[in-house]
Simulated scan of single mutants.
Amino acid sequence: MTNPPPAEIILSTSRTHGLVAIASGENLLQARDALQEAGFSRLPDGAFAAPLSAAQNARETASALVHRAHEHGATITTSPRPYLGDTGQAIAARLPGTWSAKLEIYPRQHWQEDLIGSLWDSGDLLQAMLHDRVPYAVMLNNHAGTELLLIERPGHASGYLLGAFATQEYDDNWDEPNAPRSIALPAAANRAARAVAHTFLPNYRRALHHRRLDTVMTALNRIRPEYETLQAIKDSGRYSDGMPLANSRLQPQMERAFADHAWLSFRNVLQHAPLLLSRCRPTASPWPQDAAALARLHEALANSQDAWAEFNDLRAELYSIPATLPARQWSQIRSELGAAVLPAIETWLADGETFERQARAAVPGGHVALSATAHRRPAPPTPARPTNAHL
């Protein structure tokens, strides 16, 4: 990534605002001072604008900006593209459903870098955010869980790159195998919107379906060996190495330890499986006989809702819980939750393979991609809200 000027003013034109300027660089305050002294007004999104309606006033503003920028040591760069905020609005207006577009400015490089951990991409957008200077971008949001990032395509005089952020429940997005590939968009807003609606969003929705399914199956695969080992010990009265269970009090301790560990994984099932189950249509699949197993899985999830609600209430109250709460008490909470959903765990272990084949047969299609889980990502540079690893 090349070092940007310490104070830079990036100019573009807008049908709505006239001449739009974005201040960037480590010394961005100097660039802002130059803009304000040249007669630019600040827009709500942080950019600056000056009208171009009167030719004489426009020339005076441009001349004043050149002089003020020189006085403040700011470099002026003219973009060959129209103002990105307008482009984002035009694309959002043409997408299916209701979308909003918001320009975000990253005047310093570390603000741009703050976005990288939230991106869920295996294509050029992630590479651009890693290796190119991206001083601003547009967030496209359908307010139903899908949030996209739109940037000007680096190294090209026109066109854009668009990719997705991960949904709220996912933090570890680096090298995630299901990550969709970002898409290069043409300059024309109507063509760009068609590419987003008919190509990117369906791919994104399928990728999210597979990621959720992998999350559920990984959780079950973590639980299964421990469950089978515990059951073998209970049935035989011996440890896995053949030694007899000498103390009868050890079995309840092992059950509590299993419930503790099982909850940490099974909560992923409770979070992701309902949406996947709702898409399964066994009668339309090659395995209509799976309907009974899916009904059992539905019932198991319904019977776990009290524990799931208790867990979410607890997460919402984390800030009122003393940080010094001993790990043993956290373990006890998890054990109680795990014991409460043990019948559901057993059902999901028994019918998990049936669920997997039905869910893989239910990959969504169509040109509208919507997520059911709301996503809230703090805008940079606000630090990410801390989480509690014990839960």
Rank of each mutant, 00 (worst) to 15 (best):
H298I: 11
Y204M: 10
P51W: 09
S118G: 12
W348G: 04
P82A: 09
N247T: 15
L65F: 03
A291E: 13
G338H: 04
N173P: 10
A219G: 07
G237Q: 02
L162D: 00
G159P: 05
A350E: 15
S182N: 02
I105Q: 06
A293I: 03
P135S: 10
G18W: 01
E299Y: 14
Y319I: 14
E37R: 15
N190I: 14
Q89P: 05
A323C: 10
L115A: 05
R206T: 13
V66N: 09
L28D: 07
R42L: 09
F311Y: 09
R194N: 01
A47T: 00
C280S: 05
H367F: 08
L126Q: 13
H131S: 11
L140I: 07
A340M: 05
A189D: 13
V20Q: 02
A197N: 11
A179V: 05
A189Y: 08
E299R: 15
L119Y: 00
N190V: 15
E310N: 13
S182Y: 03
H375T: 15
A64R: 13
L140V: 07
A384V: 14
Q168V: 13
R206E: 15
L301Q: 01
I105K: 03
L52G: 10
Y136F: 13
G46N: 02
L126C: 08
I233G: 07
P326Q: 12
L275K: 06
L52T: 14
L276K: 02
L314S: 11
Q127F: 09
G366H: 07
A50K: 04
T324M: 11
S63P: 01
M254F: 10
A219P: 03
R191C: 07
L115E: 12
A50I: 06
I105E: 03
S158L: 13
T354G: 05
L103W: 04
N203C: 10
H143F: 12
S79T: 12
A340P: 01
R42M: 13
Q253M: 15
Q89L: 12
R205Q: 15
A179Q: 02
L337W: 10
A384G: 07
W330P: 09
A309N: 11
N141H: 09
L35C: 06
D45S: 13
N388A: 07
H272Y: 14
Y83W: 08
R222V: 04
Y204S: 05
Q168E: 15
P82N: 08
P386K: 11
S248N: 11
E336L: 15
H110C: 08
R238W: 01
I76M: 07
M243Y: 11
L125R: 01
L162H: 01
R334N: 14
S278W: 09
